[in-house]
């Protein structure tokens, strides 16, 4: 095994294509796969007092749900094909977190789907793929 590939996954059709692509790449290179799901989260939003009180419990619940409902179904059966698969779920800015995982795990590349943002929203907020292209520490493959 030469290295690891980080793939951003959110169960969308585009993310499924990215995962398939990543699987082929991992099998071809003998790399390990890290399937990462990032829950969008900004520390600069406004919360009510009740939301603050419940935040810790909700965070754990949301992480567990991501692991259970999104990541687990995606990776079941992948191990049988001969790849080592890890799953990660995190909160934060999607592009930043994917870049950080790649850096921490010393991954060789990041693979994401080109999610179908409409022209206007991606102009205003930027797409994950676009931000990654700017900020990633390793090669990024964007799967259409």
């Amino acid at each position: 095994m030469t290295g690891k590939i980080v793939v951003g996954y959110d169960a969308s059709p585009s993310a499924k294509r990215a995962l398939d692509f990543a699987l082929d790449a991992a099998l071809a290179n003998g790399s390990g796969l890290i399937v990462a799901h990032v829950l969008e989260w900004s520390p600069y939003t406004f919360l009510t007092k009740e939301e603050i009180e419940e935040r810790h419990a909700r965070r754990n619940m949301e992480l567990a749900r991501a692991e259970e409902a999104i990541l687990k179904p995606a990776v079941t059966g992948l191990g049988a094909k001969g790849v080592t698969v890890e799953t990660v779920s995190r909160f934060g800015n999607i592009a930043e977190v994917l870049a950080k995982i790649a850096r921490d795990q010393k991954a060789e590349q990041i693979i994401v789907g080109r999610t179908g943002h409409s022209g206007l929203t991606s102009r205003l907020f930027g797409s994950v793929a676009g931000s990654l292209a700017q900020a990633a520490p390793v090669a990024v493959t964007i799967v259409p």
């Binding site: 829950l39 989260w41 520390p43 600069y44 939003t45 406004f46 919360l47 603050i52 935040r55 810790h56 965070r59 949301e62 992480l63 995190r90 909160f91 934060g92 977190v97």
Partner: peptide
């Protein structure tokens, strides 16, 4: 790694 918890700003 603590992202998702209430931040100081919030």
């Amino acid at each position: 790694d603590d992202a998702g918890e209430v931040s100081h700003f919030q």
